[in-house]
Amino acid sequence: MRWLRAGAVLGVAVAASGAVLRRHTDEDDTSRWLVVTVNAEPDAVAGDPRFTEAFAAFGDDVETRVAAAPGERGTEVAARVRQAPARATARMAGHDPRQDVRRTLRDVKSLLETGDVLRTDPPTTGKPTPGGALVRLFTRRAGGEGRL
C-alpha cells in the first residue's frame, strides 16, 4: 500500500512540474514567429491587397515576412507581435494579441487559397444541449490557438 501511495505522489509531482515547465517556456516565447504555408507564389502573396489589408489593422504592432517555402512548395507567410505583453498581463486582461495574429494568418491563408474565409458550419439544431455547448466551446477554443 505504501508503494501505491508513493507512486501516486510521484505521478502528481511529475505532472505538476511538467505544467510549471510548460508555463515557464510559454512566457519566454512571446515573440516567436507564427507561420503558415500558402499554396501560391511569393510574389503573388506579397502583392495581393487582401494580404496587406488583413495585417493593416495591426499597424506597427505586428511584423510580417513573406518567403518561398522549402522545396518550392508555396509561400511561407510569417508574423509576430513586435512587443508582446507579459503573459500574466495578457491573462489578467483576458486577451492575448498573438491569438489575433494566429487567426489573421489562418484567414489570410484561406483567402489566398480559396478566395473566402472558411468557417465551421453552424449548429444544425436550435435547441441548446449540453453536448452542443461542449462543441461550441471546443470550436471557439480551436479558433484561437488551433488546438484544444
Score class of each variant (00 low, 15 high):
N39Y: 00
A86K: 06
F51N: 01
G94V: 06
L148W: 14
E41N: 12
T30K: 02
E145S: 09
V14C: 13
G132P: 03
A56K: 02
T52I: 02
R91W: 11
W3I: 11
V45D: 06
T125L: 10
L105K: 03
P122G: 03
Q99A: 13
W3T: 12
P85A: 02
A56W: 02
R102Y: 00
R141H: 07
L105E: 04
V45P: 09
L105P: 04
G115N: 02
A78R: 06
T124V: 11
A15T: 11
A84Y: 01
R103I: 11
A88L: 10
G74D: 10
T125G: 10
V108Y: 04
V9Y: 12
R103E: 09
G59Q: 05
V108F: 04
D26S: 03
T75S: 11
R103F: 00
A133E: 13
G11P: 10
T114A: 04
E53N: 11
E63Y: 01
L34K: 02
G131K: 09
E76H: 06
T129W: 08
A8P: 01
A68M: 09
R106D: 04
N39P: 00
R141S: 05
A88E: 09
A8Q: 14
V20F: 13
T30W: 03
D29T: 09
E41R: 15
V9E: 14
G47A: 15
Q99I: 13
A57W: 02
A19Y: 14
K109H: 05
A69I: 15
A6Q: 09
E27S: 11
A16C: 12
A57G: 07
R103D: 00
V62K: 04
A142M: 13
L148K: 00
G11S: 14
V12G: 12
D116W: 01
S110K: 01
E63V: 08
R22E: 12
D116N: 02
R73I: 03
R98E: 09
A93G: 05
D60T: 11
R80D: 05
K109Q: 13
F51C: 01
A8R: 14
A15S: 12
H24E: 14
L118V: 13
A46C: 01
V81K: 02
L34Y: 08
L34P: 00
A67F: 08
S110P: 01
S110E: 01
T120K: 01
A69H: 13
A8E: 12
G71C: 00
G131E: 11
M92F: 14
A6H: 04
A68K: 08
P130L: 10
T104V: 06
R65T: 10
M92A: 15
V45K: 03
L10K: 04
A78P: 06
A86M: 03
D100Q: 14
G59S: 05
G74M: 12
A8I: 15
L10V: 14
A88I: 05
D43F: 07
A57I: 10
R98A: 14
L105W: 03
P122K: 08
G131Q: 11
A67V: 15
D29H: 08
G115M: 02
V38D: 03
T129R: 05
V62Y: 12
L134S: 08
D26N: 03
G71V: 07
E72F: 15
R91M: 11
K127E: 15
D28M: 06
E76F: 01
T114N: 03
T120E: 08
V108T: 06
P97Y: 07
W3F: 15
F138S: 01
H24A: 15
D96I: 01
V35C: 03
M92P: 00
A44F: 05
R147G: 08
